[in-house]
């Protein structure tokens, strides 16, 4: 048998109140072991309070070649941002 342990992506919540953030990846034979390995590899210095792991092959990523159609159309929608709207200088709490 010449199969290798699959790759997993590791997401760690540093403390309650914060989101899980991508920390890196590792190899593991299954989800259980991936979680344990993630604890040992990525939280040796108390970096986390919660861990997610997901097998890398299950992540569907956008293609950078499509970035034009994917992301550029959002660039000219300035009206989504508060600075688009003009208000008198002396108005407060808005």
């Amino acid at each position: 048998m010449k199969k290798n342990w699959p790759l997993w992506e590791v997401f760690v919540r540093s403390k309650n109140g914060l989101e899980h953030r991508h920390f890196g990846s590792l190899h593991a034979p299954d989800a259980d072991m991936a979680l344990k390995n993630a604890r040992d590899v990525y939280t040796r210095r108390s970096e986390g309070v919660s861990i997610w792991v997901v097998e890398s092959k299950n992540i569907k990523a956008s293609n950078p070649d499509d970035n034009g159609e994917m992301f550029e159309p959002a660039a000219d929608k300035a009206y989504r941002h508060p600075t688009f709207y003009e208000l008198p200088d002396d108005i407060e709490h808005m």
């Binding site: 048998m1 199969k3 290798n4 342990w5 034979p29 299954d30 072991m33």
Partner: peptide, 12 residues
């Protein structure tokens, strides 16, 4: 050892 862990994962 690595093979054993994979075989176990497949069985599960």
């Amino acid at each position: 050892v690595r093979d054993a862990a994979l075989a176990y994962a497949d069985k599960q």
